[in-house]
Design a protein around this nucleic acid. Sequence first.
DNA 1: GCCGTTTTCGGCCCGACTGTTTTCAGTCG
Length: 570
Amino acid sequence: MINQELAEIFSLLADALEYKGDNIFKIRAYRKASRIIKDFSLNLREFSKEKPFTEIPGIGEGIAKKIKEYIETGHIHKFEEEKKNIPCGIFEMLKIQYLGPKTLKYVYEELRVDTLEKLKNVMNDGSLAQLHGMGDKKIERLKEAIELYETSEIGKKRFLIGDIYPAIEEIVARLKKITGNVTPCGSYRRMKETVGDIDLLAVSDKGQQVTDFFITLPFISKVISIGYTKATVILKNHGIQVDLRVVKPDSFGACLQYFTGSKAHNIKLRTIAKSKGLKVNEYGVFKGKKKIAGATEKGVYESIGLEYIPPEMREDSGEVELAIKHKIPRIVEYDNFKGDLHVHSNYSDGTSSILNIAKIAKAMGFEYIAICDHSQSVTYAGGLSEDILAKKNEEIDRINEKIKGIFILKGAEVDILRNGKLDYPDSVLKTLDIVICAIHQGFRKNVTKRFLEAMENPFIHIIAHPTGRLLSGRKGYDVDLDKVFEKAQDRGIILEINSYFNRLDLNDTNVKRAKKYDIKFSIGTDAHNDGMLKYWRLGLGIARRAWITKEDIINCYTLRKLKNVLRKEK
DNA sequence: GCCGTTTTCGGCCCGACTGTTTTCAGTCG
């Protein structure tokens, strides 16, 4: 919580200084600090007891002092002072597209516009149009931006990666009809849990042809800009912005690198290149006028003396420093994944039969899959009585005898009840290959204590979605994760990375936190229908963003090794 | 305000598109 507050303050402070016209590099330093703090995996209040803030790259003496001041007093003097000089409505108006600090300051000085209401007034009465540099088109564009700001979520909202996944697939498929190579980049490629916009890269010698085709796609509501190398549009159904960039094949790697980001990662890369007398842009790496790399991403990194860095690591959180030393960890790869360990069938609230799930999983190349339906007290989700569970286990045995090439594990997602007890007795639990424990009731009631108690049970293997948060808006349990991690280490309990796109729980920062302990992870889609099985990639993306290896993830084990691990836990 | 494989001072990534300009400023990514 304190991290979010500080991130917000430094971001607003940057806005205030930018409006004032302060040194742009100082502003950039505050913005950078804001982002670093927002993504920082440890609570800053706790961190300060161990180490000085200046140990965090990007935080120097000045900002460290301000963090300390905020922790001790609840405010930052400099921010309070700077705020006084800024008309109150400016912070809000800065969120509107095409309204930057320069424009706002000019309009305030000329027309005393300090709120969105007043801005709309001067647009309507014609006085804005009297100002120098305010032509018809500019005002028209502003009007649209204000309308978008007021009526839609643009600029305010990020989209769940799973929600926009189908839109990306659709656009890519259509673009591929006129140019072979089309790749999604941006935060989507870095597998962030939410994305602000969609970035696509197409390879073609005829840029204008591709952008012209792109803006005529049927599901586009508005064209923001179009040139011969890039075009920007808004989609009808989500209101999300899509940027398309077109480059020639010999620049593909450089553009892929540039367009994947993150911004902070790219800036660091370019700074390093510059110090070596090189220049990096989206067309390649240049020594003077000579292009020395650009066709492949790997070539771009190597040409400036760095080891290749996987997209999911590119957040400027220490990966560049490791790449300089050629010590990038061997993080888990997508093709290491051997099977989904959390799937619901139509025995409880899923829609697919066990046989069907097994067939699809086999077609996806899985070696095994675990069917984990809800336990008896979760009546609203069709939880299984002990009798039905026994029947289900028999059915799985029968299918396993018949079907070749995939193994079905007998599992359950067993509720941890309000009193901390498990929803099945041990005599039932020991009939299962895999036991996942979860909280679906009493979110606010002694959650940590109940987790710890449940973890004493000798038959449980995994804790499902350990924080209980939903990205669509539920905050999650009131749980002390460090206590849970410590217990998991002591008891050899595995933690789930739930890959359902509204959960993504544990998330990247929490997995990073957990890996400081000796803990293994499992990936489960929590799929309730066939279509959801594909979201295992999101879970693996989280693992990659947390820099963990295939040895850390039990889904990467062979069936034999997996069975050994699950047996050993008992 | 941050930072150091020339540096504790003097740098700080780079380019596309738009609109209103006759060469550039503002904004965005």
